[in-house]
């Protein structure tokens, strides 16, 4: 739950004025990629990434851009880790199949 801690942080005093467009785009793309392969093999990290992305989108709506930027960056990092771990598990399964002669 510590990962959600940021949700409840008060907005930073020195807020960004510009909307984090590229961070949001990167987060959306990475979450979509992770969703395609990680639902079974890395469900927790995927759920965290999706949840953070949703909160980032909401922060964007409220024009809380600094908050949205941090959430988007974390969502992207979580999604990338989910994707990587899922990919790793699938590769390990492929290796076992290859070695057992299929």
């Amino acid at each position: 739950m510590k990962r959600l801690a940021l949700f409840f942080l008060p907005l930073a005093a020195c807020a960004m004025t510009e909307p984090p467009v590229s961070e949001m785009a990167a987060a959306r793309e990475m979450v979509a990629q992770a969703r395609a392969i990680a639902a079974q093999d890395a469900p927790q990290d995927l759920a965290t990434a999706q949840s953070k992305l949703a909160h980032a989108e909401a922060a964007m709506q409220r024009e809380h851009y600094e908050h949205a930027r941090l959430l988007a960056q974390q969502a992207e990092a979580d999604a990338k880790l989910a994707w990587t771990n899922a990919e790793k598990l699938q590769a390990q399964r492929a290796l076992r199949e290859e070695r057992s002669g299929r």
Binding site: A12, L70, Q73, Q74, D78, K80
Partner: peptide, 13 residues
């Protein structure tokens, strides 16, 4: 929060 944020990113990455 920024320290935490960057530490979090460093750990995930």
């Amino acid at each position: 929060e920024l320290v935490e944020h960057n530490a979090y990113l460093a750990e995930r990455r």
